[in-house]
Write a protein that binds this DNA or RNA. Structure first.
Lengths: 214, 214
DNA sequence: CATGAAGCTGAGGCTTCCCTCGACTTAGGT
DNA sequence: ACCTAAGTCGAGGGAAGCCTCAGCTTCATG
């Protein structure tokens, strides 16, 4: 399986240049940035780009896992916090700060949260821990009881748009929006909600629909 | 100024067919739907489409004002409610329900809120009343004091993405997300927020940037 | 340093959408 | 009935992206 020959030196160099360029370009222009711009910025022809990364998804698989691995660390940190609410809030701040730094990641999470493909593996343990973070915050009586892990998906969608719109003119705006939202998540603030959380099936459907739209 | 000759009968008919088709197509496929699809669905050539509506914006100017005029009515209703909080919440529900019915309107508000162009006039009084709705809810001690009218813009951005993503699989999902948010807007739930609201200048910048992106 | 495999190149075909313009058709007045 | 201004048509040129492939360059191994 892993019987792939090692890359020739120049090819390895080009691959690296492409990854650097792709990270920049997706970061600046979002997930739909033209591949030709990546090739141009890497100083490489479009053909070479396709040699190394036959599809757009191939780039994502090479770039995002590294980014998302940070979520694992953030999740661990959150669980280590003696104050479960603090941990929960800290995790969310870290997550959205990550999105705010990178148009591409922001797009990716907006459209494909929960994450699919290679990237899934990268942050899988982070997301599993997430359930625990939420559970812990509920048990401590700080997070409202009717908040479900699936509700985090809608929060990610919501914040992604605030981040996208305000990124240039007011890069901190999302923090204020999140603060309002978080105040609504405190146990003390809770009022009954008629609409149930998304089922995991619905969530999967949304993700699939979103991916097709791409 | 209004010295434009009345349209010939067949031309008027075509214009109507185009408006009907445009309303449908933008509603289903969003604000970036291909104009050629509109022409096709109207049973009219692309040339005729451009005769009547030389730009995409011309369609918006013809379609959205009518829609947004509903906001006026909604705002009046909100102000008439004896319970200011109820009025405020009712207005928001009506606004987002409107967005949830129409991909095009949802896109338009997500990218250009506050609204620009002709559409501005249509809902101008609605938006002026909005300040009053917020003011009233604050005075009654139900809406938290630090909520500013500009914060509504970020809420619209946020909800627009939730609506867009979940529209097919869970058309009601936005209601749950909004409920969490609203619980955070109640005076009793308020915790101090470090980040100030957007200035009106920033808001204008965002809108301009968004429009350029189109 | 010769040679074959590995890799690079970019012109060009394809698609989708935009928008224009000259040739045609028709409504509606006389 | 006829005429003409008003309106319609759709081929086609243009831009932006995607992706391929035949021919060329370069690495690295003996």
């Amino acid at each position: 399986m892993t019987g792939t020959r090692p890359l020739r030196a120049d090819a390895a160099r080009n691959r690296d240049k492409l990854l650097v360029a792709a990270t920049q370009v997706f970061g600046e222009r979002g997930i739909d940035a033209p591949l030709e711009e990546i090739a141009r910025r890497a100083g490489v022809s479009i053909g070479t780009l396709y040699n190394h990364f036959p599809t757009r998804q191939a780039f994502f698989d090479a770039i995002f896992p590294e980014r998302l691995a940070a979520l694992d660390r953030m999740a661990a940190q959150a669980l280590a916090d003696p104050d479960p609410w603090n941990g929960f809030v800290g995790f969310l701040h870290a997550l959205f700060a990550l999105q705010a730094q990178d148009h591409g990641l922001n797009d990716a999470l907006a459209r494909r949260f929960p994450v699919t493909g290679e990237a899934n593996d990268a942050c899988h343990s982070g997301l599993t821990q997430l359930d625990r973070i939420i559970e812990r915050a509920k048990e401590s009586g700080q997070l409202r009881d009717d908040f479900e892990p699936q509700d985090l998906a809608t929060l990610v969608w919501a914040m992604s748009q605030v981040i996208r719109e305000a990124m240039e003119a007011a890069p901190q705006a999302w923090r204020r929006c999140l603060a309002f939202f978080l105040d609504g998540l405190r146990a003390g603030a809770a009022h009954p909600i008629a609409v149930p959380a998304l089922t995991t099936v619905q969530l999967a459907e949304v993700t699939r629909a979103s991916a097709n739209r791409t």
